[in-house]
Design a protein around this nucleic acid. Structure first.
Lengths: 129, 129
DNA sequence: GAGAGTGTATTACTATCGCTATACACTAAT
DNA sequence: ATTAGTGTATAGCGATAGTAATACACTCTC
């Protein structure tokens, strides 16, 4: 499937870098199952002109995603969503994930949320996706 | 209580800015109950020389914490841990927390972790602190 | 009021980041 | 081979971030 650039939107003055917004949106599309391995991302020129940003900015986002094994480059043809095959043992992936979740927990606690509120929100988020 | 500077450690070449490392560590000490409202942070000079960084770097961390209401400045005396009284309704705090947790969830999914694994890790982290 | 303890405003230097313009290299189809 | 489509290397510009040196302002104690 050809992924339409209308699936994406950036807010240049949001403080969040454009290329990072694109990365987040691609990842979100993948983990929520809206796009699948083999699907093709819009070309850097197409995406760039649709969003009003330079194609190199789009390329930078794609390059990061490729480095993380999220997409694959098909030379001369474009970028396609890769088969999502996590590397390493479950234990090592959990170890990588732990500090991420831990920071979120600290923030939640600092906001004065109860354990229960945190758990319920997680439950919702897991269900929503 | 006077908080000892030996409770802190920074890794200047870690890529994470020093002042940000300090902020994280102060927050972690608070949410885990290891320090309490009224406790005094090390002076910027003491902390700075103990960690081998400039006192202005420490001051920057303290300033951020103060702006977030985490610590209070006692002019001429030092910085002390503030009473942690979250502002705003529970709903607004949950709204603020949601994107934070959501990003963590996306990362976990991308690492190929199951909902169950994510929930169990959260459970552990909540219990640990 | 002097001294020793606080934090901070100012200034400056460096490195990195984020974005862009342009020219190049590759692939597929004609 | 040519063409039209891919992504990318390179270089440069502007802004911001991170750290530091110095001088200042405040508070408490004596």
């Amino acid at each position: 499937m050809q992924i339409s650039p209308t699936r994406f939107a950036v807010h240049p003055s949001s403080g969040v870098p454009i290329y990072r917004q694109l990365i987040e949106q691609v990842l979100a599309l993948i983990v929520s199952g809206q796009v699948n391995p083999g699907d093709m991302l819009p070309s850097v020129r197409e995406m760039g002109s649709a969003l009003g940003v330079n194609m190199m900015t789009v390329s930078k986002a794609y390059a990061r995603l490729e480095a993380d094994g999220v997409v694959e480059r098909a030379r001369g043809r474009g970028m396609l969503i890769a088969e999502q095959t996590p590397q390493g043992s479950v234990a090592s992936r959990l170890a990588e994930f732990q500090p991420v979740l831990e920071q979120a927990v600290i923030r939640g606690r600092q906001l004065g949320l109860t354990d229960r509120q945190i758990k319920e929100l997680l439950q919702e988020l897991l269900k929503a996706n």
